[in-house]
Design a binder for these strands. Structure first.
Lengths: 345, 345
DNA sequence: GTTAGCACTCTAATTAAAAGAGTGCTAACA
DNA sequence: TGTTAGCACTCTTTTAATTAGAGTGCTAAC
């Protein structure tokens, strides 16, 4: 069942009005607001049809209509206008903070929350496959050995190991050589028993230390929980009364505190990228698959720092969020992030 | 004006009842509840006096009384009973997560929030004076040099430096030697122009790289914003209706998101420690100096990992929080943390 | 196909009344 | 002199009832 041209226009009028006011919108409002020049009675008839088709509902008899998820989906997919966001000084603001990835992501989150007035979530980068690029052991003092592992993409992991036996500096050098020769270029699946045996056979002393080091490396390669998530503007969602039911709000805030959304982000493979600019996706209400988010929408974008190194940025707001603005903001932000990552290499 | 014995008993009865119920408590309740065997009329007279002295107030005429900050203070300072907290398996729970400081603090925060049903905040360690213990430059690939700085207390900082000119491995070794010789044992105030000049004079090439490295080291020594704060159970405060005034709750949650409390933590020098177990301090209402916290109380404890390396743990709840339980929980937690830090050394 | 008009429905706001809790005060009592 | 019973009074909370408002659906006319 196709929607007529007029029905589309009415839908657009309903949604736009509702996005602004948050109140159910009635036939009379539309008949005045839009340039259709139709009486409220005509609008009423059309609205009745639109309701039957599932695009709008009444909260109760004798109230105006509000869009359903399906209605929002229609809007987002087919009638959203491309808004060009003034790019202004986001980039310069971010560059200041870009010396460390961590602070960069934190300020991205904060910036987005401020610009949009919704809540934001930024995930740190994940790595599709992690390979060892460089290993270094250093004797920090007689009791401590520092293990440094650099992975593909120049991710640095370090961990202090407590040692009970002193190690001579020649042995440290030897360990470094053996470890680098044996492990460089390998990913986790390639570090098997044979490789480990080979390392151990070349280092006849300090078996315990080798074990510790290998453990650190294994952690560096497998660990997924260093996958940080930065949030900001959580309280912005309290500004929207439709989200402020005592019961729901706790769940919603918990979803943020627990970073539950990332579960989903891991699942959603970044498959259909490349075709679109930055794979901006909109999840409306239950499309998020999270019960606590049933009255919210989530807009996500994927950034990529290098090959197979990517992360997600998300904005959470009420279903009646200003999708145009959010999408435009994300789009221009992504461009700037691209630049920043390029400069940082 | 000293309080009589009877007045103290009445205060205690009022506060204990109020802690449980959160409702203003009336004279009749006290006359039944407490073992004073006094009629409600007598209690009323005493209450009237206590109100005049500023220990309790009525929210309105014809309501019961609730404690003022002064009243709570009296309770916390002089009438709280030492509750011994069953220590059970907190430690074993924590040890699992203790391989990395970061995850340890995260789980401490979570554990506290769960155990107490209030919100918790844990600050990562700070260092009274930071000294360079060990420096290492490593050539990771032809474009990148990894700078590693280990500070006193085995805090590791690392940063990747992008280089434009290739550096020979002899030069890297030389740089390492010069830097370590010149800087080890120094704190930020001691790295002055003379030291820098001395380094530069010993390394005639790669002036740009030396600059970058010195910048990294300077950052490592001065940076204070890597002072992480972990929070948990923020939504627990929504369980207490007296904190749920729409206006105030946003400020309060923002205080958490922004980690505003740390400002205060920095100021409050850890001076009067050592005398008390773990310097557990209770801030009631406005004693926190934060307007958003005026209806809350904050209980903090100081942990110390080593000499001059310390951090804070805090619990935030309504003013009528179960101080005995919170203090006891913190106390036993601190003991366990001591053990954990000792083991980790 | 469009529109005016009207009865009907449901919510939200307003008002009124009643119930409840607790105090302060007075007067009596030990 | 300290304690207590009793009662009038105050203020909040709860409940109920009424009203006003918004918006629809339907019918009949254009």
């Amino acid at each position: 069942m196709e929607l007529s041209d007029r029905q589309l226009k009415i839908m657009q009028a309903i949604i736009k009005t509702y996005l602004e006011t948050g109140e159910p919108v009635g036939s009379r409002t539309i008949s005045k607001y839009s340039d259709l020049n139709l009486s409220s009675a005509t609008i009423r008839n059309e609205m009745s049809d639109l309701e039957e088709m599932g695009y709008i509902v009444q909260p109760h008899t004798s109230a105006g209509r509000i869009p359903t998820d399906k209605g929002y989906r229609l809007y987002v997919d087919t009638m959203m206008e491309d808004k060009v966001q003034e790019v202004e000084n986001m980039k310069s603001e971010l560059m200041e903070k870009a010396d460390k990835m961590e602070t960069l992501f934190k300020s991205v989150a904060k910036l987005l929350a401020n610009k949009t007035n919704y809540a934001s979530m930024v995930s740190g980068p994940r790595y599709k496959s992690k390979k060892v690029k460089f290993i270094q052991l250093s004797e920090v003092d007689s009791n401590h050995l520092l293990t440094i592992v650099v992975l593909d993409g120049n991710v640095v992991k370090n961990q202090m190991i407590k040692i009970h036996e002193p190690v001579s500096s020649e042995n440290v050098a030897k360990l470094n050589f053996v470890l680098n020769t044996a492990l460089n270029g390998l990913d986790v699946s390639e570090v098997n028993i044979a490789v480990i045996q080979s390392i151990k056979s070349q280092v006849n002393e300090h078996g315990g230390i080798v074990d510790s080091v290998l453990e650190v490396i294994a952690n560096a390669l497998t660990e997924d929980d260093d996958f940080e998530v930065y949030t900001s503007g959580t309280t912005n969602i309290l500004k929207y009364p439709e989200l402020t039911d005592k019961d729901n709000i706790v769940d919603l805030l918990d979803t943020f505190e627990e970073r539950t959304l990332i579960t989903q982000w891991k699942e959603s493979d970044v498959q259909n990228d490349g075709d679109e600019n930055h794979a901006i996706q909109v999840y409306i209400g239950n499309e998020t698959k999270l019960d606590s988010m049933k009255d919210c929408s989530l807009v996500t974008a994927t950034y990529r720092i290098g090959d197979g190194v990517y992360g997600k940025i998300g904005i959470v707001g009420p279903k009646r969020m200003d999708y145009e603005k959010v999408v435009a903001t994300l789009q221009s932000l992504m461009k700037e992030l691209d630049d920043i990552f390029k400069e940082k290499n």
